[in-house]
Design a protein around this nucleic acid. Structure first.
Lengths: 287, 287
DNA sequence: CTACCAATGAAAATGAATTTCACTGGATCG
DNA sequence: CGATCCAGTGAAATTCATTTTCATTGGTAG
């Protein structure tokens, strides 16, 4: 299933020649994918049976299956291994940003604890009112997005990125309110203060952040996302894609938690939009 | 190279059995990818040699190569064909959202005209002031994101999603100002009015939208993005990922257009953040 | 009507992948 | 310290998948 991690050999389960093969495969995906077992064996300096055993140990059916899996994987997930080359041309920048974003999506899919997402969706669904806190541009985008997705479903939600305001909101929150917080780093101390206050007041909190961070510790339910950070300061982090996907999944689960309400709400928005625009039904909910 | 299009057989180059095979392959990628030529032949009701010939006609080396190509393709681009099955479990939702997002990234990478991006980057770089207009949640997110990326680079930029305000801003814009607009549908008539006004006033405009749409027609430079739309009303469109990636690439090109300025600006932001937070240098620019 | 050609499958031939088996070197146990 | 075992490995044999060859069919053009 997860060939990439098998190839990375974190558990050290591979023998020395197998590790050599793994490294060779990671570095020469294209070659491997287009070669016969004999060519690969020769090039990597091992015998064909060793290659077959290697494939089996990785959880594949055999060599052909390995090639297929590798080809599937090649598009995603692989580039983490390659050192971050400073890029300059538009082609390079585009390629780099796209593949990092895809990696981030791949990673978040692997990491997301769906049981936690479902729990969070239930809490949000059941809430009388949702307050979404996130600051600093990135998390602000995330909570705005949550607002954008949830108000359509008929949820009562407010998004805010003003720390002082958040503190007042936290102090005034009524039972029935659920607070959602986002922080990539988990070190948004303004958010931590709010969460502590909310815990004292027994208002339930959900956060999307790094596990083990101050924000995570201060919250009731943690949607944990850990992303490796790039080194290129000119480049925004690809973590945003991961968070955005997590929000999408969460919002979708909220919708499914009460399809009827969501459907009715979406439908009236749609009708109103169609009436007010040019009557073209193909349009999106939101531009 | 482009197996997907070959399989779609637009030119009708395939014989009847081959067309049958193509359809079967598109509908049963997983089966094909995991089967031998004999199993496939049997299941599709043809003989193995026909399968081999079919693979060759599609531009592959042979059957194994075909499987590899198909596996590569399967992750991307293919799901567009499948009717959108209503999904319900968290696993299905997560998988579907992630793969759609990855498809969107793949597509935008394929479509983006990098020459246009570079042109836009030059214009934004040279501008005294940038106004970014986008409404309806999705495009609002995009222009906020552009703001978030460009202010860091030392650009003077304002993002706005208030149509009346945008109209006033357009009427008041000075030479040296560049307007950036975003609209997924290209039918944001408020934006079109602004663009028309700006054209009269000879203020340069850049838009990110669908080619051929009213918004595109009314603008000077068009960053064209066309995304197929999903049918699931509960699901937000994956177009956001494509737009976000395009913004990332654009912002990065702006940064590279004047590295020194960008570096100095980023550096002072970073210093200030480090001073004001807990001195941990690993933190991001923005949370 | 005949000859040709494209499409197809059966059978043979090829060649790749896997299994078997034997060997090696290092670890373990008495 | 030596005997034994075992994991790891490759050579050779085997199996099996793939491809090629060739014959057949059905349709089409002259």
């Amino acid at each position: 299933m997860d060939l990439f991690h098998a190839l990375s050999d974190e558990g050290g389960r591979l023998s020395s020649l197998e590790a050599k093969l793994a490294q060779f495969a990671l570095e020469n995906v294209d070659f491997v994918v287009n070669s016969s077992i004999i060519e690969l064996a020769e090039r990597a300096g091992v015998s064909p049976p060793t290659v077959t055993r290697f494939c089996r140990r990785l959880g594949c059916q055999g060599y052909s299956d390995f090639k297929v899996q590798l080809a599937k994987m090649a598009y995603i997930g692989l580039r983490y291994l390659k050192p971050e080359a400073p890029t300059a041309t538009a082609e390079e920048v585009a390629h780099d940003i796209i593949s990092k974003a895809q990696n981030a999506l791949f990673e978040v899919h692997r990491q997301l604890d769906l049981a936690v997402i479902e729990k969070a969706a239930q809490m949000l669904r059941a809430a009388d009112f949702i307050q979404a806190f996130g600051a600093s541009g990135n998390s602000a985008m995330i909570v705005n997005e949550l607002h954008n997705r949830l108000f359509r479903l008929g949820c009562h939600i407010n998004a805010s990125n003003d720390h002082n305001m958040n503190l007042m909101i936290s102090a005034a929150a009524q039972p029935g309110t659920v607070i959602f917080g986002s922080s990539y780093t988990g070190r948004d101390m303004g958010l931590v203060h709010c969460l502590e206050l909310l815990r004292q007041r027994a208002i339930p909190t959900i956060v999307m952040t790094q596990n083990g961070s101050p924000v995570a510790t201060a919250a009731d339910l943690v949607i944990a996302i850990e992303m490796p950070e790039g080194k290129n300061i000119f480049r925004p982090t690809s973590t945003r894609y991961a968070y955005l996907a997590a929000i999408d999944i969460l919002a979708n689960m909220v919708a499914y938690a009460d399809r009827n309400r969501a459907f009715k709400s979406l439908r009236s928005i749609k009708e109103e939009l169609v009436r007010n625009r040019d009557g073209d039904d193909r349009q999106l909910l939101g531009d």
